[in-house]
Each structure stands twice: as structure tokens, then as C-alpha cells.
Write a protein that binds this DNA or RNA. Sequence first.
DNA 1: GCATGATCATGC
DNA 2: GCATGATCATGC
Length: 480
Amino acid sequence: MAEELQSYNIYDPKSIETYAKGLINKTFSQVIKEDQKSIYLISGDNSHIVSEDRYDMHIAGKEDKKNKGNLGQIIEERYFHYKCNSDSRPDFHEAGVELKVTPYKQNRDGSISAKERLVLTMIDYGQVVNEKFETGHFWTKSKLLLLIYYLYKPEIKQRIDYKIGFVSLFTPSKKDIVIIRQDYNIIVDKIKAGKAHELSEADTMYLSAAPKASSSKVRRRQPFSDIPAKPRAFAYKSSYMTFVLNNYIVPGKGTYESIETDSDKPFEQYVAEKINRYKGRSVEELASTFDLSKKQKNLESNIAFRILGITGNKAEEFAKANIVVKAIRIGKNGKIKENMSFPTFKFKELIKEDWDDSTFGNYLRETRFFFVVYKYDDMDVLRLKGCQFWNIPYDDLENGVRPVWEKTVSILKNGLEFEIRDGKHYNNFPKQTESYICHVRPHAQNSKDTYELPDGRQFPKQCFWLNNTYILSQLNDELK
DNA sequence: GCATGATCATGC
DNA sequence: GCATGATCATGC
């Protein structure tokens, strides 16, 4: 069987992309197999030439054991035929293209999303404070990516059996770069302030400082503080990559509306100023201004979307940034009436988790919140007070939420204690009074809406709640 | 008045 | 049918 000679021009991104599209519908093991057949044919002026000894190693499979899991390396060496480097230049440095191999997944409803964040470059805390965005290591390496998307399936045990679905060059849009630059500066400013140890993925919108270490115990030096910090990498959030996948790589239906900013003002400042134009208006007035039924669900957050020019409740920037909108109502007495609920957990799954990679911990670590705050005035009229972007501070997460989470797990492992009196399940989960920050309470249709406990008994579905008093303490003074 | 457990209403 | 946001009921 004659192999067709295929090659690419190392100076031309488009040519690299065209050649890379030959990967579509192949598994990584197929790539390796076909490489062994066609390796002689890769030659000529416009291609990377594989050296004799390298070729021999491929055939002997000497490297395969060691690098079995490194899918990026397979593509680099077995398809593009260049030695992978770990220097600061992009992989295809003549063309300024960085190769990224990344998973996507199919959801139950048939849609697809990025399986994880896209890690770009390690943050060198000592170096990054001396660099500028445009000329710094991160952007030099990341401004033009060649994305190779493979379909992750939990039932596939060997990583090399994953199949490549999409291949595309990618560079963020101008609008996105404005936000990515803001994100970059937020991260660098925090390091300059000696707070690298307090970095959080939810500090920023599309570009985040993602934890990147072999174990959660590893720490690095930071330049403006003696406190060691977790190693972190610049990464595009999975929410951002999901949007990229569904709008640039596989153009979709476009159900999201953009919050059109009219300036280079920081995004969040722009949003806050827009909301504040309606400060003091009653919910009733606002509902009629924006033609919203007073009975509809989420009226108070929908008002915020209308103010921002969104006719539905799907804002592009919020989706990309993993920002969750929460309406908060403060009573006449200055207190928030309700605690804030989160998705229910399954008892038997919760006990299998570690805190550092827990569902609830990760949710709080990775989610940025947009609080829209209303307050009842002396006449019991609910009026808009303003808004605030928020994510949980590092210390509250690790020293506040963590003990409650761990106590919940340990209670479940030791066997939940409860008794039923008057149809109520009195139990020993962490109570609101036990922690300043959060507690466990039912969140179900009714007491018959249950999950199975580790010991086989059924118990009403529960979730973690953030205490209303804690939320209040996090609000800016002018909102209270 | 508030903590705790239970449940409702809406929308997908 | 279920998730999510919102609210209720009881007892201290």
C-alpha cells in the first residue's frame, strides 16, 4: 500500500493546521501505528526530519512505556516528528504556534464541553512580576494555539485509545484579549502584593491561576512575601474552553448574548456602573420598566440581566468566566433572610472524595459570583442596592469551609446519627450554629426525597449552605 | 427572632 | 423528573 507523502511548512500556521487535520477521527494508537509505516516518507525541505536514532527508538518502542500517557508528546514526535522541548518558545517557534492536546466530553443531553481547563504556562512568581503582558512568557507562547481535541470517555481505560475529534488554530478574539489582559494583571498584581499564596482561580474571568503540582503539599517561593505559595500555571478556565469549543471550533447555535462594553474599562467596573444607574429603584418599578412579570422565577436576577442588555438569562461573558448570578435580599433589620444553597450531594460519593479535589471545594474555588443586592426599605418596599462580584477568600475556604466539609464526611463514615420525631429527621450533621461560614441542611422535594447513606439507610437529600451572616459579612458596606 | 428541618414553585 | 431558588412551620 503506497503512503501519500504528507508534510507541512514550519513557517506557516495554516499549513501546520491543514496537516494536523489529518489527525481527525484517529486514535493516538492509530497515529503511532501509521507512523511506523510512513516514517521513511517524512523528508524534504518543508518538513521536520526525524533522525535515524530517533526513528530507531520509535520502532523499538523504547520510549513508549515511559511516555504512554503523554498524548501531546505522541502528537509531537509521532505525527509532526519533532523533538518536544520545554523551552520558552512555542512548539512551532518559526510559525509562533503552540500545540495543545486537550480533552472534551459529551454530555447527557448530547452537547459537548471542555473536560478540563487548558494549562498554558507555569507561573514563575519571580519572573512574571518583571514582565509585561504583550512581551511576557505567557502571551508569547499562547497567542496562537493549535488545539487538538480528543473525546474523553470514562469507559476507555487506555489513554492512547481516545479519538481525536477536532483540530483548529485558535487565538482569542480581540474582545476576549481585553479581558484576558485584565485577568493577567489581576494575577500579577496579587503576586506583586505578596499574596501569591492567596491566588484563586475564581479571582479572574477567562485566564486563571490554576493549581499545578504533583501533590497538594508542594510550595514555591514568592518574591514579595516569605509565605510559600502553591505552584500555579496560567490556564484558560474550562468554562472559557467550553465556550471556545462550541462557538469557534464547532460553531453552534449561539444562544448566548454578549454584554457589550463600550470601553476598555475593567469589565466588572463597567457592569457595576451600569447596574448602579438603577440603584434605589423598587423591584416593582424595575419589573415594569423591563416588562417582566412579577411572578416569574428569578425576577431579581433577571432584572440585572435586562439592565445589562441581556434579553434572556445567558450572558456570554458570565458563561465563559463561570460567573453565577445570585440575588440577595436584605431585610429591614439589615439581615439577610435566607442562607445560600448549593447542589445536593450524594452521601456515598461524598465519602470517597478528598477535600483538595472535592466537588464542593472545587465549586467554591472555581466559581465567581455576581451578587445582585436588594434591600427592603422602611415601607417594606424591596429596592435595588447595587451589585458585587465575589469569590470565596482562600482563608475562609481552607479554614472555614474545610473543617465543616471534613466533619460531614467523618460523620457519614462513622454512621450518621439521627432519630425521627414527628416525621422530622433530627441528625448530627454540622449545624449553622457550629460554624461562622457554612452548614449542612436538607434540600429536597420533601422528606421522602432521599439518597442512600453509606450504611444502606435512606436519608433526605442534603446540601452545603453558606450562612446568611457570612454572606452579609462579605458584602461591601455600601450594599448593606 | 432564629435555627432547624421540610417543602413549594418554576423551568428545563 | 429533577435541579434550583425560595419559603414555610415548629419549637426553643
